[in-house]
Amino acid sequence: MTAPHGRALLHLAAALDQRASHDAATFVEQAQLAERGALDFVTLGDTFARPGLDALAVLSRVAPVTRRIGLVPTVTTTHTEPFHVQAAVATLDWVSRGRAGWQIEVSRTGTEARLFGRRSSELPAPSGRMTSLPPSEALWREAGEVADVAARLWDSREDGAETRDEATGLRVDRNKLHQVDFEGGTFSVKGPSSVPRPPQGHPVRVVDATEAPARRTAARYADVALVRVAGPAQARAVRTELRQTAAGFGRDPDGLRVLAGLGVDLGDGERAAEPGHGGGGPRQTAQGPLYRGGPVGLAELIAAWHRANAADGFHLTPVEPRRDLERLVNGTVALLQHRGLFRTFYPGSTLREHLGLARPANRYAVAGGAS
């Protein structure tokens, strides 16, 4: 589907992050509201550095009471076991019937490292020894390996491997199970996965590619890259860089969606954007670019960036979740739908379908069953 000016329709996503909320009902309410607006997906951040509910577990609670919207928890690749991470994300894809994503993140702080008995200065190197490389480079290299082995494990059980043959008593066709035999810089995984191949084949992998060290991982492994920049020219430049790098890795760059990350404060009702928050771009803050104004002004900003081919869509983080998400859905999204820039209904049922991404072929089945 295309917009009136010939470009593909926008992709829109929203963050459900809420300060100090321990009530699952609030996350359910916000996800259902986002679904009424036909948003592609919602994200829920997580980190070992703060106390709070586990993002993946919360969205597993949200899954049965939503029907179409994608669910993308943050799960760090640092201090976690890759086999367990991929199994948990695959389980969310099954629970949600093909709507799961995974925002890949790294844990950078000494506080987080000490929770696991790891010195903050000790970082993974290809040899498995410790290195003095800048932390982000080493951590994102490890994150890329985790993203790689996760995809291999999702493929390690072919579609239809679970036979449940009552006559023979066999529950799995062993010809459709494959060892991945992966050797990374800091871990090794034999496989196969303990979870059947996810409904989407591969749940959608999301990477915040704002920082340079994360961009190679995003370009090589992500389906969606988030970029927090304050102007359309910057966004377009990063999008071009990501697509070119993806092509250099042998990927089809059209298989990578780049969304501009933007904080939104819609507390001013229908007023125009405050000076420096709209027009050519939002105001840059310590937390990233911020739009402050009304829903109409936000719709104008999004439409202008879309015309400029700056990004494939937006990932919006409400400053006040309950207030701003309601104004976003009923105001900004409604205006974009009226202008033919955003969908009015979900044409498919999976997150990959919302994003216009194909279901990946199984690498082992394509190879004729060779592992």
Rank of each mutant, 00 (worst) to 15 (best):
T344R: 15
D181Q: 11
L341Q: 09
A55T: 03
Q179R: 14
A235P: 01
V229A: 06
S21T: 15
V65Q: 05
P135V: 02
V238Y: 04
S96T: 01
D159M: 11
D265H: 07
R271V: 02
L16S: 00
Q103P: 02
E211A: 15
E158V: 08
G231E: 04
S96F: 02
H11F: 12
A150C: 06
G250D: 11
Q30R: 10
A151R: 14
L170M: 08
A308K: 07
P51K: 09
V62S: 00
L341H: 06
A273Q: 04
S127G: 08
M1W: 08
D93M: 02
D173K: 04
F345R: 15
L316I: 06
L290V: 12
G297R: 03
E274K: 14
V319P: 07
L290G: 02
G281T: 04
R141P: 00
H306S: 07
D159Q: 12
H306R: 09
V258L: 08
R236A: 13
G169A: 10
R171N: 12
G117H: 08
L256C: 07
L133V: 10
G191F: 05
Q30Y: 04
G52L: 12
T78C: 10
L256N: 09
F249H: 13
R228A: 14
T350S: 15
A235R: 00
Y346F: 13
Q86D: 08
P232I: 05
L290P: 07
R243H: 08
V95K: 07
A57M: 14
A361Q: 15
L71S: 00
D148S: 07
R339H: 14
R292W: 07
A143F: 00
A247V: 03
G348E: 11
F345W: 14
L177N: 00
E300D: 07
A273T: 02
D46K: 12
Q103T: 04
A100V: 00
G250C: 09
R171G: 15
S121F: 10
T109C: 09
A310L: 01
V62M: 00
T78R: 08
A57N: 14
G288T: 04
T163L: 14
L133D: 11
A334L: 11
P232A: 03
P347N: 07
R19D: 10
G201R: 06
H338F: 15
F27H: 05
Q244P: 03
A25I: 08
L256M: 06
A310K: 01
L71R: 00
D252P: 02
F27K: 02
P126C: 06
A24T: 13
G263P: 03
L262D: 03
K190Y: 09
R236C: 06
V58P: 02
L328S: 02
T78L: 06
R119H: 12
P192G: 00
V58T: 03
L325F: 04
G288I: 04
R243N: 06
D312M: 08
A55R: 01
G201A: 12
E274M: 12
R220E: 11
D165C: 07
V206S: 00
D223V: 04
Q18W: 04
V180N: 06
E241H: 09
